[in-house]
Each structure stands twice: as C-alpha cells, then as structure tokens.
C-alpha cells in the first residue's frame, strides 16, 4: 500500500464531483439568500455604470472620428475672378501636397444649400437675383490634423479672399473627448475593483460560515480544487447574473435612445445598436464572470492555507 494511493474510475469520479460542486454552489446561494442578492446587486450596479460609460465612450469616439472626417476648409474666392481663373485656382489647389479633395461650390449652389437648411428665413433672395454669397472651395485634407497648416498656405494664395475652418472648436473637441476617455477608463477600473472587493466579502461570509466544513475537508484529504470549485461556481454565477441584468436593461435603453435620436436629433450620429450591443454584452459578461470568479478565489485563499 502506498501513502499516495488514489483510486476509482477518473471519469465517473469527475462527473460525480461536478454534480457535487454545482449542488453545493446552488444550495449555498439559496442558503445565503440575502447576501447572494446583495452581491448580484453590487455587480449589477457596477456593470450598469460601466456599461453606460462604455456606450458613451463608443459614441464619443464615433462622433469624434465623424467630425474629424467632416472638418474641412472653406476658401472663399475673390469676387473679381473669372471662370477661367477659378478653374486654374482649383487645379493648383488639387495639386497641393496635403490636400485630399477639393470641391467647388458656386454661390448659387451655396444659396440653395442655405435655403434648404434655414427654410423661409432666406426666401426671397433667389427671386430678385441678389445673392450675398460667394463662390467657394471646400477642401479636405488627407489627415485632419494638417488642417491649420493647409489653411495658412491657402490664406496666402492669390485669388482667395478668406479662409474658414473650425480650428478652435475642433481642437477643443479632440482634447475633451480624450479626457473623457481617460477619466472613463480610470472610473471603470475603480468600479470593477470595488465590485470584486464586495463579491469577495460576500463570499467570505459564506466561507466563514462553512469554515468548519472546509477544515474537516482538509483534514480528510479533499484537494484544494475540490474545496474551491463550489465557491468559484457560486462567484461566477453571481457575477453572471449580475451582468445579465444591466445587459438586458442597457440593450433596451440604448435601442430606445437611438430610435429617439433618429427622430429628434438627426444630426447626432449615434452608433447603431447592432454593432454596440454585441460588444457591450460580451464585455459585461466577461467582466461579471471575472469579477465573481476572482472575488471568490480571493475570499477562499486564506482558508486553504494548510
């Protein structure tokens, strides 16, 4: 006989053990009803805030890139220029190094555009042929960050009266969104740690209540993982349920928000739900499981010391 003898059919034993782990985990969840409920609540609140931040972040990012792509320079043409000269100017603009696209907007076209945006406010102008607007070029740079440099060289070109671009607004926006993302990230990490700590404490109560059982298990030779599994399953389950609730609520709310925005804030380009929700669901479930699992492992560590 060996000191290290084990025994039994491994597969049958594994199945039997898993039945035991799951039974133990769920009976513990039910026995500690209120604490389980509190843990789920903590994860739910955490992941709800986290999820909201994520949605916000994704949209801010989307909005930023959208705006980045839309920033363009408007170069107004001197009024005295004839058609030929305007065309030459266009060619030299296109040949500029950092320029991606040049579009000519005649003053008639500009007026029509303005009218469609502002409606009857500018009615009347087109009828009597008076048009206060100028011909212009809309110029897009290859990378948005080059915009001020290109604008400066345009300003110096003959035939161009004035150059317009939303530098300050754009730069401020870039800085703002960057800050939002960093603050959001720090906030999320803090929240996730808090949730993990709370879950660890919840399960620690369960573990405490069962410390005698655990001690006996150790004395009769239960393996560490045999002792650990039920608690791990318990934590993962609480974490997953805690993720399920915000996933459902946020998915619903986001869908509603996008629908509402389409009708009322049509200029605001929100990311469509199909794309965002999948990413959010995945992240929240992974995080919930992780928080629950790690929380329970932390709480049981002390009791497993030989």
């Amino acid at each position: 006989m060996s000191v290290m003898s084990g025994g039994g059919n491994t597969l049958i034993m594994a199945v039997r053990n898993w039945v035991y782990y799951i039974k133990e985990a769920f009976s513990s969840i039910i026995r500690n009803g209120w604490m389980s409920f509190a843990s789920i609540g903590v994860v739910t609140v955490t992941l709800f805030i986290l999820g909201s931040f994520m949605l916000l972040n994704i949209n801010v990012e989307h909005l930023t890139s959208e705006i980045k792509n839309q920033v363009e320079i408007i170069a107004y043409v001197d009024e005295g220029l004839v058609v030929d000269e305007v065309d030459k100017l266009r060619v030299s603009l296109i040949q500029m190094e950092k320029v991606e696209e040049v579009r000519f907007v005649s003053k008639q076209e500009a007026l029509i555009r303005l009218q469609s945006q502002l409606g009857e406010l500018v009615e009347g102008y087109s009828e009597d042929g008076r048009n206060p607007l100028r011909d212009s070029f809309e110029i897009r740079t290859i990378i948005p960050e080059d915009i001020s440099e290109v604008a400066a060289s345009l300003q110096a070109m003959p035939g161009i009266a004035r150059v317009d671009y939303g530098t300050e607004v754009v730069e401020k926006l870039f800085r703002f969104t960057g800050a939002v993302q960093w603050i959001g990230l720090a906030f999320m990490i803090g929240l996730a740690l808090t949730a993990m700590f709370l879950i660890a404490n919840t399960i620690k109560l369960t573990v405490n209540a069962r410390s005698r059982e655990i001690m006996i298990m150790k004395y009769v030779g239960a393996t560490e993982w045999f002792i650990r599994w039920p608690f791990l399953i318990e934590g993962v389950f609480l974490g997953t349920i805690g993720a399920l609730i915000p996933v459902v609520i946020l998915s619903y709310l986001y869908g509603q928000t996008v629908g509402w925005a389409k009708l009322n804030l049509y200029f605001l380009p929100l990311v469509s739900p199909e794309i965002v929700i999948e990413q959010m669901v995945r992240t929240l479930f992974v995080l919930g499981t992780f928080i629950g699992g790690v929380g329970s492992l932390i709480s049981i560590r002390r009791f497993l010391k030989v």
Binding site: V3, G6, R212, V220, G221, T223
Partner: peptide
C-alpha cells in the same frame, strides 16, 4: 497537491470533536 493524498491515509481525531 500531494498533501491531500497524504491526509487520505491519516485519520485525525480531536479533543473537541469537530462534527457538522
């Protein structure tokens, strides 16, 4: 991981019983 295997071959009895 070998410690549990050792314990399976040792029965321990305490003064204070330690029953569930």
């Amino acid at each position: 991981w070998e410690v549990p295997m050792l314990r399976r071959n040792i029965g321990v009895v305490f003064q204070d019983f330690r029953l569930l």
